[in-house]
Structures are given as structure tokens and as C-alpha cells.
Design a protein around this nucleic acid. Structure first.
Lengths: 130, 130
DNA sequence: CCGATAGTTCCATGATTTTCGAACTATTCG
DNA sequence: CGAATAGTTCGAAAATCATGGAACTATCGG
């Protein structure tokens, strides 16, 4: 039982380029995918940004861009694949970047309050920004 | 004595889009310009990434992209213009993002050490990453 | 073995971006 | 005023990116 082939190439953590990472995250669809992955690994089909309307090939291309930039890892798992955020590698290489991106709020919001440190955890779920 | 016209449009801090900012910073030349501006405002010509080889129009376009994303402010000043980083607006809108970007180290470096918190301030000047 | 499933890769098309010369505009200096 | 300076904007060509259908590959279920 040879380890399954179908491995895709991933850049080493030390070789990640900031511009590539920023570019990968600069697309709304890819950013959305990244946010979704922040909650845990997903199979490719589950990365679908909205409902379930974008074609397989397009989704696969976006994942490829994210993978080549080093944002995401894509490993074969049986007949499907698991996609996961390379959190630790990104944090090591670009400290604070990923969390800054993930914590961003949508355009119009974030009005007042939140001055200093609002002790008790926020009410709703995590924020999101297009 | 009418206030000088030649004002260029800038998006409000609250309207900045994360994807636009990430995109603006995802280009090597624009990232370099941004780094240069981190040390203080500059007149347009002084933003030149390398020596002084890129055409005026190209530089102007890069600055336009940065300005429209809200990364930079460009104000008329006599016969020239001053370009400056919108640090506070960016920090307010996307906490931690700019500093994460500015602190990134180049690809191959950052080998060992720097494990925990290396108390004494670093020796050389700030890092830079292509 | 035969299908169905889950994805990637190939290929073509259209949309953005990048780049840069040239024209244009405002402002200062002599 | 007229020339020089500092930049923006226009326009066009080249490169890159995005999208999605179709073909291809591997794995699992029966």
C-alpha cells in the first residue's frame, strides 16, 4: 500500500512571498474561502463561498492560487481532499497578518464603541469583510 | 485666492475595502513604495522604488492604485505633491494589518533565533520583503 | 469490473492590469 | 508673460487573471 499519489506541490513556509499571499487574499472569493477555512479544514466542495453556484473548475483554480501562495494546504483524503489554512506557517512567516485579515469588519460597520478593550466577548459570531 | 484645486479624491476611512487594500499592496513596486512611505511623507518623484528608472506615468498609476485603495494620501503642495501613508485610518479600519505587512522579512531569511521575545531592540534598521 | 463521486487539468474567451509615451495642467521662477 | 518643473490623464499594446465547459484521473461502493 504505497502512499497515495495525487499529492499537490506546496511551497515551504520559509519561501512564502508576501506579495503572493496578499494577492491571493485580495480576491473576494478567495478571501471568503480563507475565512471559511479559518474555522477548520474542509473538503474542496465545502469551500464554496456562496450557496453552491460556482463551477468546480473555478473553485479549483482559486484553491490553486491560495495553495501556490502558501495560504492553504490541500491533501488527498480518500476520494476527496482536505483543504486547510496554513495558520502556523503564515503566522511564523508573516506574524499578525492572517489574524489582521480575518478580524477585519465589513465596510460600513464598526461605527463607535470598541474604544479600549471591551472585556466581555462580543455577542455575535466573528466579523467578516468583503 | 481660492484654495488650490488639484485635489484628488480619497475614500473615507470607513469605506476602505480589505480586498482593495490587499490588492494594492500585492504588487512589488507598490509594496516598496508603501515601505518607503512608512518612514515619512515624500513628494511623488521620491517614491521611486529603485534608483530612478520607472517612468513618471507608471509611478503615478501605482500611486493612484494605492490612493484609491486608501493606503496613501496625495495632497497638492505648491508645484509638487506630498504622498503619505494613511497609517491611522488603516490601523483603525484594519488593526494590525499595516504593521504586519511592514514587518515582514524577505523570503529566505529569518532562519533560527528570535524564538521568544528578544528583549533588546533589533540592531539594524527595519526589515523588508519583496 | 462498472458506475458514481470528487477534483484537477486543459483550453479558450473575456476582462483586468501593467506599462509607458505623449499630451495636458497647474505652479513657480526669472 | 514665458520657460521649466511636477505630476496627472489619455490611449494603446502586452501581459496576466478569471471563468467555466469538457476531458481526464483516482477512489470507493456494489
Amino acid at each position: 500500500m504505497p502512499g497515495s499519489t495525487r499529492e499537490l506541490p506546496h511551497p515551504d513556509a520559509a519561501d512564502l512571498l508576501l506579495t503572493d499571499v496578499l494577492f491571493a487574499l485580495s480576491d473576494p472569493a478567495r478571501l471568503e474561502i480563507t475565512r471559511r477555512l479559518a474555522e477548520g479544514p474542509l473538503e474542496v466542495a465545502a469551500c464554496q463561498p456562496t450557496g453552491g453556484d460556482i463551477p468546480k473548475s473555478t473553485l479549483s483554480h482559486h484553491l490553486k492560487t491560495l495553495r501556490e501562495a502558501g495560504v492553504v494546504r490541500n491533501v488527498p483524503h480518500g476520494r476527496q481532499r482536505y483543504v486547510s489554512l496554513r495558520r502556523d506557517d503564515l503566522e511564523q512567516r508573516f506574524p499578525g497578518l492572517l489574524s489582521a485579515v480575518l478580524h477585519a469588519t465589513p465596510a460600513g460597520e464598526q461605527s463607535a464603541a470598541r474604544a479600549a478593550s471591551d472585556a466581555t466577548a462580543g455577542p455575535g459570531p466573528g466579523p467578516a469583510q468583503r
